[in-house]
Computed example of a mutant assay.
Amino acid sequence: MGLGTLGAGGAGRPTSEINIIPLVDVMLVLLVVFIVTAPLLTHAVKLELPQASSRPNVSKAERIEIVVQKEGQLHWNGVPITRTELEQRADQLAARAPDTEVHLKGDEAVPYGDMARTLSALARHGLTRVGFVTQPAMSP
C-alpha cells in the first residue's frame, strides 16, 4: 500500500514501505503453536530397566625395563644380563605375554648399533610394544 508524502515537492508520488503487521501475526501464531506442542515433546515412557553390577576388567600389562649402558652392559629390570640371556628372556616373555610393554633406556654414549641390536632382538621374539625412555631437556 503506497502512501503519498506530505509537502509540495512530493505530492501524489507513492512511497514503498514494508508492512510488518502480517509478519507479526505469523510469528505470534508460530509462538502459540510451539508453546502448545513443547510439553507434548517431553513425554517419556516409564520403564523399569534391569540392574547389573559390573566392574571394568582392566588388567595392566606387565612392564619390563631394559637398560643399555655405554660399555654394552644390559640390565633387565635392574638385574645385569648378557645378550644371550636377553634373547632367552625375550622369547619366554613373548610366549607368556606378548603385549608386555618394554621400556628401553640407553646411555647417551651408547653406540647406535648396540641399541639397534637390542631392539632387533626384542622385535625378533615378538615384543613390539617398545618405548624409548629419555630424560627431558632442561630449559634455560
Rank of each mutant, 00 (worst) to 15 (best):
Y112T: 15
E71L: 11
T128N: 15
A121N: 07
S120L: 13
Q73H: 02
L49T: 04
W76P: 03
A95T: 08
D25S: 09
P111N: 04
P140S: 14
F34V: 07
H103W: 10
L31S: 08
P98Q: 00
V45I: 12
T82Y: 02
I18W: 07
M27G: 10
Q73G: 06
L3S: 13
I18Q: 10
R13A: 11
L49F: 08
P56I: 04
L31C: 12
A123W: 04
S139T: 13
M115S: 05
P39V: 01
L122S: 01
P136Q: 03
I18Y: 10
V45F: 09
L6P: 09
E101C: 08
G113V: 04
R89L: 01
K105I: 03
Y112A: 15
L3V: 12
A123K: 15
V67A: 14
V26Q: 08
Q135V: 14
E87V: 13
A61Y: 05
E62T: 12
L122K: 02
L119I: 05
H43S: 11
L28F: 12
L6V: 13
L122I: 00
P50E: 00
E48R: 10
G78E: 02
R96V: 05
R96G: 09
I20R: 13
I66N: 00
D25W: 12
A116H: 06
G4E: 05
L119Q: 14
R83Q: 00
I35G: 12
E71H: 07
A123G: 11
Y112E: 15
L93I: 05
G113S: 14
V32F: 11
